[in-house]
């Protein structure tokens, strides 16, 4: 078991998310940076699960630590690994490496500070965080108050149950991600995008500006939507009459709320593109200029408030190739002992 000593800004139990809920308005939730959680699980010998919500295998549940402040203590010896954002984690005051499995001994205190690069750190525990499944997943949806640990962010005093532990789990200590595969979260980030179904509603100069701009993450962003600060985008003139009648005069409103899955970029009234995160509902009423490819939702999850990011358009074929390439990395070949 793990005892939470301080919950930090927002720490939640997450796996790779739930599926089958989109037709009911239930978002997938799960880790915003799936790559980091899956690698952490791989390092400690857990199931990493499928990419972005695959039925029957959401992978083991770990902790998603947002920006700062989690402190926890082991009630028993546990094999753990911390990945994702660099929060200067320490074990009884001694720095611990990221992207590497290590033993958290009974009574030892693991503390995370402020994120210096990246926005979300992940902690995987051998055996997984063993909270009840809801719709096939242990992911927390904080706004809906369901899933995870009592449907909420963790607080001091919470005791987290851990799943089945193999007797030889300590032999996995020291396993680490090959150094060349460790992502860098600093500087301007590039996020790959496939052109969206309503991109043609934007005027040409605005669509060009969308890809040419160094956008800044609005600090008001969360797992529902990441908002980006930058120039206002315009729409082509000559909005069809049916759109004005059915959806109103605002050119970003499209007649009928279309499906808006994770990664969809909407630009309400042309101001501040919003990338829908893993906690976003499945419909949205605004023109979709692009959709962030599923692998790059991990990058989105690591952008700090006011950090810069650029959107790069790629073809649909290349987005599938990127997915296959990343899936190949979620394997033992990426681990060194």
């Amino acid at each position: 078991m793990l005892e939470i000593v301080a919950g930090g800004l927002q720490t939640t139990v997450q796996d790779m998310g739930r599926q089958g809920g989109q037709c009911l308005g239930i978002p997938p939730s799960g880790a915003q940076d799936g790559f980091a959680l899956r690698i952490a699980n791989l390092l400690v010998g857990n199931s990493p699960g499928g990419p972005l919500i695959i039925r029957d295998d959401p992978g083991a549940a770990g902790l998603e630590i947002t920006m700062a402040g989690l402190k926890l203590q082991a009630k028993t010896d546990l094999l753990v690994a911390a990945t994702g954002a660099d929060m200067g984690a320490t074990l009884d005051g001694v720095p611990v490496p990221r992207w590497q499995a290590f033993m958290l001994r009974q009574g030892q205190l693991l503390a995370f500070g402020m994120a210096t690069s990246g926005a979300r750190a992940y902690l995987a525990v051998h055996g997984g965080i063993d909270v009840p499944l809801y719709l096939g997943s242990r992911a927390t949806h904080v706004r809906g108050r369901f899933g995870g640990f009592n449907g909420r962010a963790l607080q001091a005093g919470d005791i987290l149950p851990i799943g089945q532990i193999r007797a030889d789990s300590d032999t996995l200590a020291g396993r680490q991600l090959r150094p060349e595969l460790v992502p860098s979260y600093g500087g301007a980030q590039e996020v790959r995008v496939v052109r969206g179904p309503e991109a043609h509603l934007f005027d040409g100069a605005s669509e060009t500006a969308f890809y040419a701009t160094a956008w800044q993450l609005n600090p008001k962003s969360d797992r529902t939507g990441m908002r980006f600060i930058g120039p206002e985008l315009g729409f082509r003139p000559g909005r069809p009459r049916y759109l004005i009648e059915e959806a109103g005069a605002d050119p970003s409103n499209i007649v009928i709320d279309p499906g808006a899955p994770v990664g969809t970029i909407q630009v309400p009234s042309g101001v501040e593109p919003i990338v829908l995160g893993v906690d976003a509902p499945s419909v949205g009423g605004y023109a979709r200029i692009g959709i962030v490819i599923s692998t790059d939702m991990s990058i989105i999850g690591q952008i700090q408030p006011l950090q810069h990011a650029a959107f790069v358009q790629i073809s649909h074929d290349d987005s599938v190739a990127a997915l296959k390439q990343q899936e190949a990395l979620i394997s033992e070949s990426s681990v060194v002992s």
């Binding site: 599926q19 089958g20 989109q22 037709c23 919500i53 695959i54 039925r55 007649v255 009928i256 709320d257 279309p258 499906g259 899955p261 499945s282 419909v283 649909h316 599938v320 997915l323 296959k324 899936e327």
Partner: peptide, 22 residues
Amino acid sequence: LVETAPCFASLLVHYEPRDISY
């Protein structure tokens, strides 16, 4: 096929591109 979500005038289809191409 992963899952579907009907919207008012459209259907959102979620599929696994490693199992079936677009």
